[in-house]
Amino acid sequence: MTSIDLQQARLFKWKKFATEGAGRLIIFLVGSIILWWLISAFLIERPDRYLPSPLSVVLSSADMLYKGSLISFYSDTLIRLVIGGAVGIAIGIPVGLALGLNRFVADMFYPLMNFFQSVSGIAIFPVIVIWFGNSDTTVLIVILYTSFFPIAFNVLSGVRSVPVRYIQAARTLGASRFQVVRDVLLPGAMPSIAVGTRLSIGFAWRAVIAGEMLAGRPGLGNMIFSGQEFDNTAQILLGMVMIGVTWIVLDHFLLRPLESDTIERWGLVQR
């Protein structure tokens, strides 16, 4: 009796492990790597050109690590992301605030900003290249340009969403205009600022990769692009995996918690 119960309990746990959370993710990862390996080993002609096996990707990474290029590419890309994203956000927040505070200013500049937002950073790339050449400046400008708009628009709508009552209450307590901005509007817009930051970094991440590819600056984007040029598909796959994993880690462990924390902490949600 008891032994059967135990067995059932164990079985049940296995099923739970296989269908939920981390266990499922591990199974999924292992499964897809096996699938990838099977495809590359048995289904494809010339796998080293079209889909190298996981092993050769690992070897390629070991090789690049040994030569030191992997680390330097990776850090170059991250530094660009941080600088471009930070500057874009640092410009976007005050611009969004200015638009949110003043209807006249907003009515005036909203259409302009909307137009330039739809001119994607990638589309203006050729123009920037004509102006600044294939340089780091070009890549940084493209990143800055793409990360500026999401945060600016989010701050704008965040400021607008602060209830008028809060502003009135602060005014009756004797707050000056500046104090209203500091104590009511900025904190009230905090959740939107967090959402906007996450979006901006997401856009910036795409822009970094595209910019590096197009301008040929050393980094992950360039790494996958030159992988294609020099017929080194393992290097492309390695770069792609790194791009994806970096974003997932960044998003999951930094941006998302930041967003949900601010929404919870500063949120206007009245429970």
Binding site: Y50, I122, M213, G221, F225, W247, I248
Partner: peptide, 14 residues
């Protein structure tokens, strides 16, 4: 996450 753009080199290979 591997945003559309990062697929371009592989797509060119394929």
């Amino acid at each position: 996450s591997v945003s559309g753009i990062a697929w371009i080199p592989l797509a060119i290979v394929w």
